[in-house]
Simulated scan of single mutants.
Amino acid sequence: MNVKLLLGLIFLVSVTTFAQEKKWSVEANYPISIGGDLGNDAPGIIDLGIKYRFVNLSFATIGFGVNSAVFAKNANVTETSEINETHWLVQPKLFSEFKLPGLSKLRPSLGVGVTFINSSFDGNLNGVVFDNSGNDTAFNVNVGLSYDITKTLFVQGQYDFIDYEATINQNDYLGLLKFGLGFRF
Score class of each variant (00 low, 15 high):
residue 68 S to K: 05
residue 69 A to C: 07
residue 71 F to I: 04
residue 79 E to Y: 10
residue 79 E to H: 08
residue 79 E to W: 08
residue 80 T to W: 07
residue 81 S to H: 04
residue 82 E to D: 11
residue 82 E to S: 12
residue 85 E to H: 15
residue 86 T to V: 15
residue 86 T to G: 10
residue 90 V to M: 02
residue 90 V to Q: 00
residue 91 Q to F: 00
residue 94 L to N: 01
residue 95 F to Q: 03
residue 96 S to E: 00
residue 97 E to H: 04
residue 101 P to V: 06
residue 101 P to D: 09
residue 101 P to A: 09
residue 102 G to F: 04
residue 102 G to T: 06
residue 102 G to P: 03
residue 112 V to L: 15
residue 112 V to G: 13
residue 113 G to K: 00
residue 113 G to L: 00
residue 113 G to C: 06
residue 114 V to R: 05
residue 114 V to L: 08
residue 122 D to V: 00
residue 123 G to C: 10
residue 126 N to P: 03
residue 126 N to I: 02
residue 126 N to F: 12
residue 127 G to A: 03
residue 127 G to R: 04
residue 129 V to Q: 12
residue 131 D to P: 03
residue 132 N to M: 09
residue 134 G to L: 02
residue 136 D to P: 01
residue 137 T to H: 12
residue 138 A to W: 10
residue 140 N to T: 06
residue 140 N to A: 09
residue 140 N to E: 12
residue 141 V to N: 05
residue 141 V to D: 08
residue 142 N to M: 12
residue 143 V to W: 07
residue 144 G to F: 13
residue 144 G to S: 14
residue 145 L to I: 08
residue 145 L to T: 04
residue 145 L to M: 14
residue 146 S to W: 07
residue 147 Y to P: 02
residue 147 Y to I: 00
residue 150 T to H: 10
residue 151 K to Q: 11
residue 152 T to S: 14
residue 152 T to W: 11
residue 154 F to R: 03
residue 156 Q to E: 15
residue 157 G to S: 03
residue 157 G to M: 04
residue 158 Q to M: 15
residue 158 Q to H: 13
residue 160 D to M: 00
